[in-house]
Amino acid sequence: MRPSGQDALLEAARQEFSEQGFGSASIRAIAQRAGMSLSAMYHYYSGKQELLHAILDESLDTYFASCARALAQVGEEPADRLSAVVAATTRFRAEHLARSNILLSEERSLAPERLASYSSRHAEATNLFRHAIDAGVAAGIFLTPYPDESRRAVIAMCNAVAQWFRPDGPLSLDELVDRHVAIALTIVEYRPQRSWSAGRG
């Protein structure tokens, strides 16, 4: 468990970075948002760079936990696994707008020594989609001839939620999740292998 002051700082930095961007964010404004002095803030973090790294790590932890919960509810069928990842990603982007926008826009602000660690974790997130799509292609139930481009299109669709979705808009999150899953399965050209003659005399 983190100290409450550390949690307050992370939330304050998350809001400041989301609203102002990392480059324009003020370390003094972050401390003020958290209700503490600069000296107290430096007790937890050395500056903006360390705060950004902590926020990105914490956001990825939250995202991976969401995907793990969704995947635990399905078996090994590729369509179910892709659907679970698409649903979890769509929900994460919609329910964590500030986290999502920082994840999607502030990677470029990381110092080189921190970027390698973040890039490795980001690749893990991409692999959640890649593994499901590659498995479906190998099984002959995803007929897309372009699995890499299909993966990029599905990920882009999910990521865009953070830019446009609003909870009070005309489309509910549940409806959006259902639509995204349907669109993702269409993109990979899902063709379930079913026998309609089984059991017929």
Results as ranks from 00 to 15, higher is better:
R179H: 12
H43D: 07
L52P: 04
S66I: 00
V181F: 05
I133R: 01
L56R: 02
R121W: 03
T126I: 08
K48V: 07
I30C: 04
R166M: 10
D80N: 07
S100T: 14
E113M: 02
E19M: 03
P167D: 09
T126V: 11
S39M: 10
S26H: 09
H131P: 00
A34N: 04
S39P: 00
C158Q: 07
V85W: 01
R191K: 15
I187S: 01
S197F: 07
S109D: 12
S26D: 13
Q73L: 14
S39N: 12
F92M: 07
R152E: 12
S83P: 03
Q193A: 14
A65S: 14
T186F: 07
F92N: 06
Y190M: 02
A8K: 15
S39E: 11
M41Y: 03
N101L: 15
Y44H: 15
E175W: 04
L143E: 13
E50A: 15
G199T: 10
A25C: 06
N159T: 01
A98V: 05
A156D: 11
A25P: 07
S195L: 06
I187T: 12
E16I: 00
E149Y: 02
R69S: 13
F22H: 12
I155V: 14
R179N: 06
Q6D: 10
S117I: 01
A116T: 15
H96M: 01
S109Y: 04
A182F: 09
A125M: 09
E106S: 14
G35W: 06
W196G: 15
T126L: 11
E175L: 11
L71P: 02
W164Y: 15
D178I: 00
R191W: 06
E95S: 12
F22S: 05
A65C: 04
L71M: 09
M1F: 07
R130P: 00
E95C: 10
F142V: 05
E50K: 09
L185I: 06
G136P: 06
G75E: 11
A198Q: 13
W164R: 08
Q193F: 00
G21Q: 11
R166W: 05
Y63W: 14
A123D: 09
V86N: 00
W196M: 10
S18G: 07
P147D: 08
E76M: 10
E76F: 09
R2S: 09
F92S: 08
A153C: 11
F142L: 08
E95A: 09
L103G: 04
A72W: 00
A54L: 03
A12F: 02
S46P: 00
R108C: 09
R130S: 13
Y42V: 03
A162R: 06
I55C: 02
R33T: 01
R114H: 11
A12S: 13
H180I: 03
G169H: 13
L9K: 06
R191M: 08
T90G: 00
L60H: 10
S120I: 05
A8Y: 05
L71V: 11
G5N: 13
S120Q: 14
L128Q: 10
I183H: 03
L60T: 14
R151T: 03
A68P: 02
G140F: 09
M157Y: 02
S120K: 14
Y118D: 05
P3C: 05
F64N: 11
R69L: 13
A65D: 15
S66A: 15
R152F: 04
A156L: 12
